[in-house]
Design a protein around this nucleic acid. Structure first.
Lengths: 139, 139
DNA sequence: TTACCTTTGCAACATTGTTTCATTTGAATA
DNA sequence: TATTCAAATGAAACAATGTTGCAAAGGTAA
C-alpha cells in the first residue's frame, strides 16, 4: 500500500510531511527515531509539523510510538494486520530494544496478554518493552 | 528501615538530598514524579543534584524509574523484598498508570514473565506498563 | 582534626515538546 | 477548471527536561 493510499484509507489529508514520514518508515522496515526519520525526509522536515503529524498519524492508528526510555523514542508503522478502513490498529505486541545497536524491533509474535488486575482496576492499553541484545549483536 | 539505614546498607554516602528523596518516597507509599518529590523535599531540592541522585539511587537499586510516557516519569522506592546488603533489586513487576488520576501503582502481584524471544535474542530487562482506570477512578 | 575523595550547586548548554497566529494548501463543490 | 473553506504548515517564542564542567562544600575514614 502506498503512503497516499494509507492516508486516503484513514480519511486524512495527503500532505508532503505525512507522506514523507510514512515513506521513511516504509523504506526501513523497523521503528525509527525522530532523527532517523528526519534524515530520510530531507527538505520536507519541520520539527513542529513533524510532532503534529506524529500525533495525527498515531491517533489514526497508522503508526505507534514506542517509549523505550524518556530520551529514547521510536515510531513504528502499524503493519496493517488489518487493512480495513476503520479498524484502528491496537498496539498489541511487545517491543525489543537492543542495548548494543540501539535498534527497536516489533515482536509481533509476543502478544500483550490480558493481565488480571486487582479488583476495581480496568486496563485500556498496555506496553511491554524487552531490553537486551538482538541476534546481530549477540555475536 | 530509615533513609539513613538504606544508604548505609548500600554503601552510599549519606547526604541531605538523598535522604530527602528517600524520605519523600517513604512518606507516600506510591511512585512519585519529580515535582511531587520536589514539593516534599522543600528547601533541599536542587534540579541538577536531584537528577544525579536519582541516577545514583537507581543504579544502586534503591529506587526504580517508571517511564509511563516520555513526559511522564515516576520514581518508586524498591520495596525491599530483599533487605540483603548486596542484593540489587531487579524491577520484576508490572506498573499501572491511571489515566484519570495520573497515579502510578506497583502491581507486585503481576510478575514480569520470561518472554520466549526469537532465536538469538537475549533479554536483560523488561518493563510492563498497564494503562487504564484505577479502583478509585472506576466509579 | 586532618585529608581525600565524593557530592553539591551554579552557569551554561542541549534536547524535547507545545502554543499562538498569520499564511498556505488540500480537496470538495460549483 | 476555478472557487471556497477548513485543515495544515511554518515561524517565533516559550516551557520542560536533562547534561556537562568546574570550583566550593561536605562526608567519612584514619
Amino acid at each position: 500500500m502506498t503512503a497516499t493510499d494509507v492516508l486516503r484509507h484513514h480519511n486524512i489529508k495527503k500532505t508532503a510531511g505525512r507522506i514523507a514520514i510514512i515513506k521513511a518508515l516504509q523504506e526501513k522496515c523497523c521503528p525509527l527515531s525522530e532523527n532517523e526519520i528526519k534524515e530520510l525526509m530531507l527538505e520536507s522536515y519541520d520539527r513542529i509539523t513533524f510532532y503534529r503529524n506524529i500525533h495525527t498519524l498515531s491517533s489514526a492508528g497508522i503508526i505507534h510510538k514506542i517509549v523505550v526510555d524518556n530520551t529514547l523514542i521510536r515510531y513504528g508503522l502499524n503493519c496493517c494486520e488489518s487493512t480495513h478502513e476503520h479498524n484502528v490498529h491496537k498496539n498489541n505486541h511487545a517491543h525489543f530494544y537492543c542495548e548494543t545497536c540501539h535498534s527497536v524491533v516489533c515482536l509481533q509474535e509476543i502478544k500483550i496478554p490480558d493481565f488480571s488486575l486487582p479488583q476495581g482496576f480496568v486496563s485500556a492499553d498496555s506496553d511491554i518493552i524487552i531490553k537486551g541484545k538482538c541476534e546481530k549483536c549477540n555475536h
